[in-house]
Design a protein around this nucleic acid. Structure first.
Lengths: 324, 324
DNA sequence: TTGTAGGCGTTATCAC
DNA sequence: GTGATAACGCCTACAA
């Protein structure tokens, strides 16, 4: 690959001049500029980003730390982030933390060594302090760590309320909830939203809330047991779509028809919900928008621009399909 | 962040010495080594990868160009690649090409500028010539471009034969095929495999092969039409799982019970197949293994090591679930 | 308007 | 064994 020196020689100017036309900085005579541009074209020269990074101490690269790209919730986020970053001239490094703080920390170290300009992370294990000490912009997506750190999330509680109320409106009278992991903020918020709607009802029992881990298989088991214990249940609000599908399976296995005998609603709006039969009614998050915003906010921060706020909370939307 | 110079000063040695202990190269006295190591620890020094890259002309980074990470086929591949790369000390940059050659080319340019050490790509549009001119190792995954370029794929034709035969063994007598895009090698191979099994049958008609584009919605439409035209059909082999699920939907809409009245089998073995009801019978690819191999082979190539072969073809496996 | 030169943090080649 | 020092390719004072 040709270097700036080659271009300079070819155009019979100094490297400084080439650099100037490259970056559109400082004075360059019209004639000279033309010569240089011709040289660049002739030599098919592309500036070496690594050398640039070394000098500028930034790399036009951002790190994206997700629990696991195989979890169907994350690809759309990742896609939106990559799209947006790419449009703005940034490249994204993908990291899978498996919810493991140590692993996340290792990735962060590597990213720092590579001079990434910023990081987008979805994690509940990482600490605010750790992030602060990074000295580069960080934005959190989907999981909130602290109000101090720019965060992109959705109104989980409201969504949960919408889901639960919707089940009630559909005439369901004994509504259960499969909640997500205790250590994930959004799972708690969704559970809280459910509670707000049902706690006043006299039919409500604590045992209508069962623990899931956001995964399908576990949800199936847990719901099967729930239905055995409480055959009166006629509605389920699952804290995410994956578990909702697990719940549908359980309902079938229990011999219940969905939606005739039991209604099931999920949360997230992932593509999977359209693949199930019946298709899943859900509280849809604007996933692409979330990812896009995360990338935009992060890059603003990188460029030292002001951001309007530090907490971006998007609205969710009820999408009625065939499971309710 | 502390630099090698800071460490040198702190340990009262030269940067050369620090570099030596860092890289375990050249002679370093036991005493000196200890001093340096202490300094490194005290200053919490981590070598700057960018500077290293500049000097070495490699970045310990690989590029991963996929059509679209939102396509449920790719996350598992991406995950395997990232896992493996990470274990071997490499970082991966994610790129979504949308099957667009220009876009892929732009990504390649950027990756080159960033000195990536190699690229893993899944594409049918890119040309062998283009890849050759890159002068860095490239391996193809899932889509074969040329026998000259290291390629990781699966025995598509065999898998297709297995699928079709399986349907026959299940007593199905009128078996249709939804094929994938014409310009994708694996789609043609799968279609070919189907053909090999059915072409001898007297019931076989050309119109039993319909065109899909590997997407669910299109598959549903296409299968609906197919069933209208040919109500005798009692088995469908879809060229991928996503279309198979679309086919299941179509069958339901047409009033057919799966698997009682019609059997449906897919190809790929993606997680989606376990989310559908009934769960999908499929020809499973060892996706993780494929990704892992791609990463391993690429890194071997990067290190200048020999690879055993240039064409890695893995076996597929029939996974019987509830749709057949 | 253009060129010279120093430095970004490392590594590797020499001397010593 | 250890230490200067010249690259790697680029950018930006500062001179000219």
């Amino acid at each position: 690959m040709a270097s700036i020196r080659d271009v300079a020689k070819y155009a019979s100017v100094s490297v400084a001049t080439v650099s100037r036309v490259l970056n559109d900085k400082g004075y360059v005579g019209a004639e000279t500029r033309k010569k240089v541009e011709a040289a660049i074209a002739d030599l098919n020269y592309r500036p070496n980003e690594v050398a640039r990074s070394l000098f500028k101490k930034q790399s036009k690269t951002i790190g994206l730390i997700l629990p696991d790209i195989m979890n169907p919730f994350f690809p759309e986020l990742a896609r939106a982030i990559e799209d947006t970053a790419s449009k703005l001239g940034y490249t994204v490094i993908l990291c899978n933390s498996d919810e493991d703080e140590e692993k996340a920390q290792r990735y962060i170290d590597v990213l720092l060594q590579k001079y990434v300009d910023g990081i987008i992370i979805s994690s509940n294990t990482i600490l605010e302090k750790t992030i602060r000490e990074l000295n580069i912009p960080v934005v959190c997506i989907d999981r909130e760590i602290s109000k101090e750190i720019p965060t992109i999330v959705v109104d989980n509680k409201k969504g949960a309320r919408m889901a639960t109320r919707f089940l009630k409106e559909k005439g369901r009278r004994k509504i259960a909830h499969i909640r997500g992991p205790m250590d994930i903020v959004n799972a708690n918020e969704r559970c809280e939203g459910y509670r707000e709607v049902v706690s006043g009802e006299q039919w409500f029992k604590e045992s209508y809330i069962v623990n899931g881990n956001y995964r399908m298989e576990t949800a199936t088991e847990v719901v099967l047991e729930l239905l055995r214990q409480h055959p009166e249940i006629d509605g389920i609000f699952a804290a995410n779509d994956t578990m909702a599908i697990g719940a549908i399976k359980a309902a079938y296995q229990h011999g219940l028809k969905v939606p005739e005998e039991i209604s099931i609603i999920g949360f997230d709006g992932i593509a999977l919900g359209k693949a199930s039969i019946p298709e899943l009614t859900t509280i849809e998050q604007p996933l692409y928008k979330l990812g896009q915003t995360a990338a935009k906010v992060l890059i603003k921060l990188i460029k030292g621009q002001d951001i309007e706020k530090t907490f971006y909370q998007f609205n969710v939307q009820l999408v009625e399909r065939d499971s309710t």
